[in-house]
Computed example of a mutant assay.
Amino acid sequence: MSEQEAAIRIGEALGRLRRERGLSQAEAGARIGMTSQGWSLYEAGRRAGLFRPDMQKRLTAALDATPEDLMLLAETPPSPAPGPASAPATDGAGVQSKGRDFEPAPSRTIRRERYRLDTDDMGPWAFAGTIIEYEKDRQPKQGGGAVLQLRDGRLHLGLWQGSDDRGVVVANTGGTQTPFSWRDILAVSAVTARIEPE
């Protein structure tokens, strides 16, 4: 994916977040001292600042969201817009059959949990006191935050490196990789937010 395609995808995700909150571009922009025109340029993916973490934090804060929410949404394709009912199809014998309407997939319940870090092992990504929010049973993305719930009751935070039939590998911010066997893991979850201590 090119940088321009990535910018467009992030901008579209920003627009989806704004619409989910029921805000106009002018209302969202006003929350952070920006004009509706300035906000629309971010949603169109036409501002280079869209990739800057501080700008993502500023934009998402206007929507009561986090940069992690934005990036997760950017990776999820938008639902297709409802279109007109499908026209009857015909087969070779001239017999008509009705188009089939599909029920949307049932929405899944999002199970988010939080815990507070008590070490600086993941600095500068997250320090002691940072609250980690994670979505249970959501597959982490490559290099993204992952929480492993271990059978011994511990939680392990790391950066997702991948998995195979034997287990998973996570790394700390220094790049040291740690493998875990599937037999030692109860659940794998994706980090959806880091809430910095005040």
Results as ranks from 00 to 15, higher is better:
E68A: 14
G174L: 10
G144R: 10
Q25S: 11
P88D: 11
I132P: 00
I110H: 04
R52N: 11
S2P: 00
R16S: 04
L63F: 12
A28E: 03
Q25T: 10
P106A: 14
H156Y: 09
G144V: 02
A65Y: 03
S36L: 01
T60H: 04
R108T: 14
T130Y: 14
D64N: 15
R154Y: 08
M1K: 09
G144S: 12
P197C: 05
G129L: 03
D165N: 13
S86W: 01
W182P: 00
G175Y: 06
I8R: 15
T109F: 12
S79A: 15
I195N: 07
K98E: 11
E198H: 13
E133N: 06
K57M: 08
A65V: 09
G45K: 05
K141F: 15
M71K: 06
L72T: 00
V188Q: 05
F127Y: 13
H156F: 13
Q56P: 00
G33M: 13
E135M: 04
T178E: 11
I10H: 04
P67G: 05
P140W: 01
V188H: 05
W39K: 00
G33F: 13
S163P: 01
A61N: 06
F51W: 14
D64E: 15
G144C: 06
S2N: 11
L155K: 14
P140E: 03
T66S: 14
F127A: 04
I132K: 05
I32Q: 02
D120A: 08
P140F: 06
D118P: 00
L63G: 05
A48N: 07
A126K: 00
V170R: 01
A44G: 06
V191T: 08
A146F: 06
L59T: 03
R31P: 02
E43W: 08
R18E: 04
R46A: 11
S97H: 14
Q37R: 12
R166Q: 12
D118C: 10
G162D: 07
L50F: 10
A26D: 12
M71T: 01
M122V: 02
E68L: 09
R16A: 04
G158P: 01
E5T: 09
R9S: 15
W39L: 02
M1L: 13
D64C: 09
L59G: 01
Q37L: 09
A13V: 07
A105N: 05
E103H: 08
P78H: 08
E20N: 10
V188M: 13
K98M: 10
S2F: 04
A146V: 13
G145W: 01
T76Q: 13
A28R: 02
I8F: 15
A105H: 10
L159V: 04
D54Y: 14
G38V: 07
E12Q: 15
A187M: 13
G144H: 11
T119V: 07
P179I: 12
A89S: 09
Y134Q: 03
Y42E: 00
G129F: 13
A105L: 15
D101Q: 12
T66W: 01
L63P: 08
G15A: 14
P140Q: 06
S181A: 14
Y134C: 01
T76A: 08
T173G: 02
K141Q: 10
S86N: 06
T178V: 10
Y134R: 01
A26I: 08
V191H: 02
G123W: 15
T76Y: 12
T76F: 08
I195R: 13
R108Q: 12
R111M: 12
V95K: 05
Y115V: 02
